[in-house]
Design a protein around this nucleic acid. Sequence first.
DNA 1: AAATTATGCAACCATATAGTTGCTTATTAA
DNA 2: TTAATAAGCAACTATATGGTTGCATAATTT
Lengths: 109, 109
Amino acid sequence: MQDNITKLFKAIADPTRREIFHALVIATSALSITQISDQFDMSRQGVTKHIKILNDAGLVSMTEEGRNRFCFADPKPLKAINKWMQFYSQFWDDSLENLDNYLNKNKDA
Amino acid sequence: MQDNITKLFKAIADPTRREIFHALVIATSALSITQISDQFDMSRQGVTKHIKILNDAGLVSMTEEGRNRFCFADPKPLKAINKWMQFYSQFWDDSLENLDNYLNKNKDA
DNA sequence: AAATTATGCAACCATATAGTTGCTTATTAA
DNA sequence: TTAATAAGCAACTATATGGTTGCATAATTT
């Protein structure tokens, strides 16, 4: 349905999801759905939905232990965003000059 | 309504907007709304809406010349995304060990 | 075995998003 | 001055999103 980079961007475009992701990154251990929803003013189901989206984007994984599902963050997929931005970063400083360089470089390609 | 970083993420979370943004970045000159919609299989109004969102995120600016509105890309705001990712990048390689370091470092803060 | 706890699933709701079409207006060209 | 062009505005549509509640079920605890 959606390509991976779009899933990634959409996952972190929501401020609540960024907060959940952050909480998981800095957590000392994996957190159950209930533990997460305890620290967010939101229903357990709301959290479950966000976790699903983060999981689809590869940013959160789970381990099942009995009735618990412990979630933990995996920031690695964010590398893809870094990669995406790499191309544009060449225009950050003195952007006009660099754009010019880019255009000249690719003129006779 | 929405904070800047959220506007940024939402702006580039849409694949069509990423394409429009990219087209503007590599364009040899600023492009009018019509010129943009010509290369995208979409109505002029559709493009106008996307441009508005990109503009609100600071990624696209416009100059009015007569009946034309020429759009050009400004990739600089993407720096904020780079900044946001900086924190998580410390976990990219050998993430468990680095996470451990982070936690120990902040233990008695 | 009964009560509690952690979760999933489904339905529902309100709003946002991505797109369209139709009409108006301002600028430019014939 | 008439025709063509570039764009804005408003209304509409369909689907996605972020959230809720209620109920079912599986695992633990008492």
